[in-house]
Design a protein around this nucleic acid. Structure first.
Lengths: 222, 222, 222, 222
DNA sequence: CATGAATGAGATTTCATTCAT
DNA sequence: TATGAATGAAATCTCATTCAT
């Protein structure tokens, strides 16, 4: 599994570094939850992974659920950070949009924890997300980027007029998400690893092309 | 046509009907697994849901894992049955393909258990799927349908030549799957139920249009 | 400690005697709660005392609190049974009342669990008692007995007219209860066991005489 | 007159006032022990209640048991102070004794901590009381008062000759104690708060009258 | 085939106490 | 004197599985 956050290995005993300990626990929790889900994760394993006594996990996070919520917030923070693409506008609307789709796909590949935690949270009907400090997706910068690119595309008479932003966002995300979320069952079905670089490249092309083809003003409408 | 086992609800106690009991247990298991995942599901709850003693569940399915595999097979059977669309060809390649995309989306909406069980099975890296009696996706009839429609589209000079079937299959599934799999977190983020009919209709249009737009031969290539 | 209920010792494994197991667990629980209170009692110890796996205790009683409520109900049943004195009337009102006071004292001495569980339950402000199937004291037969004896005493011009039944009940109970409840601290303070037979006899006399002296019509009122 | 340590509420943080901190901790401990008993009390909660770090509680009192013993000593100090009634003699033996009974009752009502801690200490068979710096009840001034009043009553030919002081002390205490100790279960059983003023007044009358009636020389013995 | 009481291993959580600062 | 992070042992509770009936 790809690890992005620097993961502190076992901390030495006697340390009085509350923030460090919290970070180590959170990192271990994200790993464990990503691997086994909420119900399948073991607090023992998380404590061991953080190099910390089990009691400290409860001291800092209260309960398994509390830790889950913290992990969720972490995943959403990653999502927001990963989608904060401000440099796309210079590419123009068509190539900008294609890059956006590619970037979303790349984000899910780089951060399987986002995919895994979201899947699990949907199993719980987003119960914990509502308890999280803020529903973080609301400030999703991706939305703003999409709207800017759409406006530019319409102004240059390149894009269709009637695009529903939400639907476009969902479609673009779904194209990348599914490939990652179902990596293993798809690989089993197709009898070959979906994550071989050339397969990824092929799919990335398709996915970008699909978004762009959809957005482009039909030829006959000139 | 492929048949899926009819799932009976709650049996009345004392019935001497081994097959009925098995079906009731499987149905209860699918419900429980869909709701809580593999680790979160409770054998007690499954027995209660089937109106059956706990021991009988083990008698018929051996273990929780055995029951999970049976539930997975059931989900895949549903998937195959739902994608067995032989009547599409008469619509022609473009409309046939659009209908296929719509149908896939509709299947996931109608059977959340497919989505939930697949997600969970991916958490386990498809370990059980490989243990299932047959890897059922291999004879996926959807593939055949797609290839038939693609061939027709190419023959009529409507579709692009270079379509990767697997990528198309994944993209088409992903567009529908994500919307269902992430129903709750997306609804929380967008502050409104994603499953209101008009929203579904909007998305279905986008999804179908996206597939068709991608496949269509570029205007300039006539 | 004096044990009244026949306590089943360790049951042999594999027994399929749910009622027997429940009774054994309850008996062990009453012992443990009497000894250590609600918070101090150990479920492990109760299971061991009943010769039963820990899980079975939870299977039958749900939680420590559930077991506590069952123990409370048991104590109240003992109280009711012990106070069901129907044979007192033949002694006449004065001696009947004295016997009643003696009997109440004797009941608390014979059943320290009543005293201990009530004390603890008061610590919890009777929270569990309200959750018990029925507030069992309401049908307290002692009340009926007291009222019958009072009526007889008044009819024979022996008792004062203005007796508050509730207050009399509380006073009579208190005289016996305190002696048992505070056995250990009083013994420490008086540097000698309060439960030596001659001390008990002395106190029993005082307690009976006090009740009777209170009830008796003042000499000058003839 | 005997002084009882003034119990301060919550201290402001950072104060350099060791005695103040000790007093605050003790006060919080008495509250917590009164509420939850020895086993049920939480050191965390006591520290929080005292506005002090947990470590400081251990620094000053060594252990939970040490704190419990201190709390017990505090309760016994209250008891002694409350029963230090030197002004009763002027009322004469009969009214003096009645006032004594009332005063004892009032003391238990005003200080539930005395009742609660004594109950709990009896659960432990007065184990800690013996470890307390001095067994404080031994110099119980109430005893002296009782004996003085009894002597006066006998001298005036008002009281019976054969009164056992210990038994009288126990009876008098028990009448008041039980009413307070069993406040909640009795209130539940009688479906009404026992601590409503008119009920207290009724009981106080009964309790005083009972003591006096017992002590009074029988009419026929003139 | 069917029951559900019973188990035992292991899960989450609690909490008095210690200790680096 | 004072803090509060950290520990470790032990508590309550869970749950897949077994087994006598």
């Amino acid at each position: 599994m790809i690890r992005v956050m620097v993961i502190r290995q076992r901390r030495k005993r006697g340390t009085r570094d509350a923030e460090g300990a919290k970070a180590a626990i959170l990192a271990a929790a994200v790993r464990e939850f990503t691997d086994k889900g909420l119900a399948g994760a073991r607090m023992d394993e998380i404590a061991r992974g953080a190099g910390v006594a089990k009691g400290l996990v409860f001291h800092h996070f209260g309960s398994k659920e509390g830790l889950w919520i913290a992990a969720l917030e972490h995943a959403y923070a990653l999502l927001r950070a990963g989608q904060d693409e401000t440099a796309l506008d210079v590419l123009g609307p068509v190539e900008g949009m294609r890059r956006l789709a590619h970037g979303t796909f790349r984000l899910f590949r780089a951060h399987p924890e986002i995919v895994a935690l979201m899947n699990e949270e949907n199993l719980h009907r987003a119960r914990h997300l509502r308890a999280a400090k803020a529903i973080p997706l609301l400030y999703n910068p991706l939305f703003a980027t999409i709207e800017r690119l759409l406006a530019a595309g319409r102004a240059q008479n390149l894009f269709r007029e009637d695009v529903d932003v939400t639907a476009l966002y969902v479609a673009m995300s779904g194209l990348g998400y599914f490939y990652c979320a179902n990596r293993w069952t798809l690989s089993a079905a197709f009898a070959g690893d979906l994550f071989r670089p050339e397969r990824i490249a092929t799919y990335e092309d398709v996915l970008g092309e699909m978004v762009v083809a959809y957005l482009r003003k039909p030829a006959g409408s000139l």
